[in-house]
Design a protein around this nucleic acid. Structure first.
Length: 379
DNA sequence: TTCTCTGTTAGC
DNA sequence: GCTAACAGAGA
């Protein structure tokens, strides 16, 4: 159940991420629902359409996937349960869940009998799903849940090449709840998905970046409102109170993220790869000192298999914000300044006060603007 | 392998 | 012209 819950959270995080990246943001305002305003954690099965009506019900859901949450809360019952409820739920059903996970028969039973829950999750998914469910819902869930599976290096599926986003219907098979789907896809899909902006393989990232028509360097930050907006968004996210929020905040809290490039950029996939509490990851929260050997790569959640897919010495360091790849940690660190707005290099000239994010630029400025002054001073 | 410096490009 | 940002070369 912990995994279940974690996946659920994952799915939501990814979903949010997807929303953030969604082209059509009519759904972006959706997050509010995530505050679980009308979320009835105790959504009763009877509140869902009977099995015989599910098809129609789902049809209905699909036909109007784009319609934003409307006032009539009755129809929105199929929404995700709150974290708190999930926690409670996890506690009470943990044993049962474990049993289920271990027993295929139990899975069968679960997939066949708990229709209500299934419907519930489906309903929730449908309600929160942005228009293109095939991309939004199914793709995002995979990446981060895969991250969850990374630690288990024994998972053979991790070696599989990237697979296209699962079809929503497919994602619903088996244990079909979004969370279940996440679990399911987690194991079957590599940590990144092509549709994911933040979880692409470096070479893919480069491709995507290079393919970006005119990604002005200066334009990157604009798209990068993300580091902060993301931080704020996540900070406001209901998940901040979730068990995994600890790690999430550790990744995104602006405070930490200020200059801890190791935190911010090596963990780039964080939003989506948001690590649930149960993750047996070696080092969830990177300590530059602890990971001084290779802080960047480590936090990329790159499986050994994945690592072997691209050059070790080339652009290993990916900016978690804009996915830009760098071959050197220092480059990434400096680049991070462009996102954080940090300008650690201040002009030493008295009365100047100018600051730069790049040391060389500062020196250049010094030479250019204070050459006379400095020469005068030095001589 | 990484850092610093230099050169370059592009936006304002 | 100034600055941001990046890549390459050398240390």
């Amino acid at each position: 159940m912990a995994m279940h819950l974690a996946s659920m959270v994952h799915g939501n995080v990814r979903e949010r991420d997807a929303f953030q990246h969604a082209q059509h943001s009519p759904y972006y305002p959706a997050p509010p629902p995530r505050a679980y305003p009308g979320v009835n954690v105790n959504v009763a099965p009877q509140s869902y359409p009977a099995p015989a009506q599910q098809a129609e019900y789902h049809q209905y859901q699909r036909q109007r996937p784009q319609s934003p949450p409307s006032p009539p809360a009755e129809e929105q019952k199929p929404s995700l349960p709150s974290i708190s409820h999930l926690l409670e739920f996890a506690g009470s059903e943990k044993a049962a869940a474990e049993t289920v996970a271990q027993s295929p028969q139990s899975q069968q039973r679960q997939s066949s009998s708990p229709q209500p829950r299934q419907a519930q999750h489906r309903g929730a998914a449908s309600m929160q799903q942005p228009p293109p469910p095939s991309q939004m819902q199914s793709s995002r869930p995979e990446q981060c849940s895969t991250y969850a599976s990374v630690p288990s290096g024994s998972n053979p599926r991790m070696t599989l090449p990237p697979t296209p986003p699962m079809h929503p219907d497919v994602a619903h098979d088996g244990n079909q709840s979004p969370s279940a789907a996440s679990n399911h896809s987690a194991a079957s899909v590599p940590y990144f998905v092509g549709s994911s902006l933040n979880n692409m393989e470096p070479h893919h990232q480069r491709q995507s970046i290079s393919s970006m028509p005119s990604v002005k360097r200066d334009s990157i930050p604009s798209h990068n409102v993300s580091p902060y907006s993301a931080a704020s968004v996540y900070g406001q996210s209901p998940y901040a109170s979730s068990p995994g929020a600890a790690s999430a905040t550790s990744y995104y809290s602006p405070e930490q993220h200020s200059y801890n490039a190791a935190n911010m950029y090596a963990q780039r996939p964080l939003p989506s790869n948001f690590q649930p509490q149960a993750m047996p990851l070696p080092v969830p929260v990177p300590s530059p000192a602890a990971n001084s050997s290779n802080p960047w790569q480590h936090h990329h959640y790159i499986s050994t298999a994945s690592q072997s897919q691209f050059p070790q010495s080339q652009d290993r360091y990916i900016c978690s914000t804009c996915n830009k790849a760098f071959s050197r940690p220092s480059s990434l660190r400096i680049h991070s300044h462009s996102h954080t707005g940090e300008k650690p290099y201040k002009c030493p000239q008295a009365g100047c006060g100018k600051a730069f994010s790049v040391r060389s630029n500062m020196k250049r400025h010094e030479r250019g603007c204070h050459a006379a002054t400095s020469t005068t001073l030095t001589t």
